[in-house]
């Protein structure tokens, strides 16, 4: 199979050889993305930080031997992070509700105000209420801005299945947030 063109490939290889500039660039480019994915999947800032750190440690472990292959680095990283999130969600389901960690709001700057925070929490609640796979499809395609092929690869499903999950997820979200269409302009 032909190797895919990977915009991160060279950076990963340099980081793997111990180039500190490459490592910094990789962290600047990928850590916010991994953290955002984990946060919107787990809806918990502390757990999201743990997942982001674990995912990046896996990057460092694999970087010295990284060779451009059939998957792009970003796709691989999303898959690693999502699997770490699934582990935590599984553990959460096995834990009694009382033991769940307290959710921490990421916070908003003083300029954004309470209104934006309210709207954000409503959207978060609607997203978290979706079935897991639908939520993942929305998070990967909308928030992480992955293409359908990459998102399908991350989730380990066909592109058709991904499109179906995405379509159902979006429909449910629109239903849940229908009363907010006038709020958008104020955010």
């Amino acid at each position: 199979m032909q190797a895919v063109e990977d915009p991160d490939g060279e950076l990963v290889q340099r980081a793997g050889r111990g180039d500190p500039t490459a490592a910094q660039a990789l962290v600047a480019r990928k850590l916010p993305r991994v953290l955002a994915l984990a946060y919107r999947t787990l809806d918990d800032a502390a757990e999201a930080e743990d997942v982001a750190q674990e995912a990046m440690l896996k990057v460092w472990r694999h970087a010295p031997a990284w060779r451009p292959g059939k998957a792009r680095f970003d796709t691989w990283l999303h898959r690693v992070a999502l699997n770490l999130c699934y582990d935590r969600l599984r553990r959460r389901r096995e834990q009694p509700v009382a033991d769940l960690p307290e959710r921490v709001d990421p916070g908003f700057g003083p300029d954004r105000g309470l209104r934006a925070a309210d709207v954000g929490r409503r959207v978060a609640a609607a997203l978290q209420a979706l079935p897991e796979r639908q939520r993942d499809a929305v998070v990967l395609c909308h928030y992480q801005e992955l293409g359908n092929i990459e998102a399908a690869e991350v989730m380990g499903v066909s592109v058709e299945a991904l499109e179906s999950l995405l379509s159902r997820g979006r429909r449910s979200l629109r239903g849940a947030l229908a009363d907010m269409k006038n709020e958008v302009a104020e955010v």
């Binding site: 953290l35 919107r40 982001a52 990421p106 709207v119 959207v123 997203l127 958008v184 302009a185 955010v187």
Partner: peptide, 14 residues
């Protein structure tokens, strides 16, 4: 508007 609404759910920065 739909994108704007979804983007109100912000993720923290590292």
């Amino acid at each position: 508007r739909w994108d704007q609404l979804l983007d109100a759910y912000r993720a923290p920065l590292p």
